[in-house]
Amino acid sequence: MIAEKGVWNKLRSRLLFTGPTLFAFITVMIVPFLYGIYLTFTNWDGISTSHSLVGLSNYGEVFKDGVFWKSFGLTLKYVFLSVVLINAIAFALAYMLSRGMKGQSIFRAGFFVPNLVGGIVLGFIWQFIFSNVLVFFGTKAGIPFLSASWLADPDTAFWSLVIVTVWQYAGYMMVIFVAGLMSVPGDILEAASIDGANGWTKMRKMILPLMIPSFIVTIFLSLQRCFMVYDLNLTLTKGGPFKSTEMVSMHVYEKAFLSRDYGVGQAEAFVLFLLVAAITLLQVYFSKRMEVEA
């Protein structure tokens, strides 16, 4: 059928399969995205029936908004720590749970479960743990760093966010690593053992290079998710104490909907989109070049 001649015939069979998805994609992604870009050139406040074009002044506001760049810096710090910890812990878990130990499927499932809990619920659960459970045990046992809520201090609140993020995503990334580890051919590892390579050498020279494709995926996923974190930020710390843990997505949201500066909020969202797209594309580009063939 596809080989049939005529543009219409080709188009028709393609539309049959991709049409519905394409339609959904265009209406819920492309159109709002373009409309959003249009709104960055206006001074709309989110509700009024009229708005006027203001040119590029919203983008000027973005560069003048010190709080935006401060929270972007904070987000970079958070992303860096989370991505490193998520991948390190996930790889360690995957490595341990793919050596054929007893009950490893149960452990794998167990580590994966946090990922099935939505960020909102997760935030509330951990809020309770950090400000009630830990404080309770801390005061009973007389441990000073646990006897006050972690969420009430800027530094510990930041670390709480990192801890919960790592806990949430490590299991997910572990699954990807497990799949990657299984595809490392056993014969070359065996050959290496016969040649006298010890465990560490095998890890460094063979397993890690062959795992690059998995790392590309996991780092990409964790980068993108951590940059866009909002739900956890909202439910765990609400950006507090005193806005010290306000990540950039939350700042953008508040700019648009709380300060009612829709145009500037949209412009900040667009700038954020460009920055995150650039960072993730660079990551994929450079790590692709590290790939090797077995």
Binding site: A152, P154, G240, P241, F242, K243, E254, L258, S259, R260
Partner: peptide, 20 residues
């Protein structure tokens, strides 16, 4: 008061309350 007054000034008050 402006719509974001409570949030922004509230954060400053919290900072004062925490002696930061």
């Amino acid at each position: 008061l402006p719509a974001d007054h409570w949030s922004k000034v509230g954060a400053s008050m919290q900072k004062y309350l925490a002696k930061a």
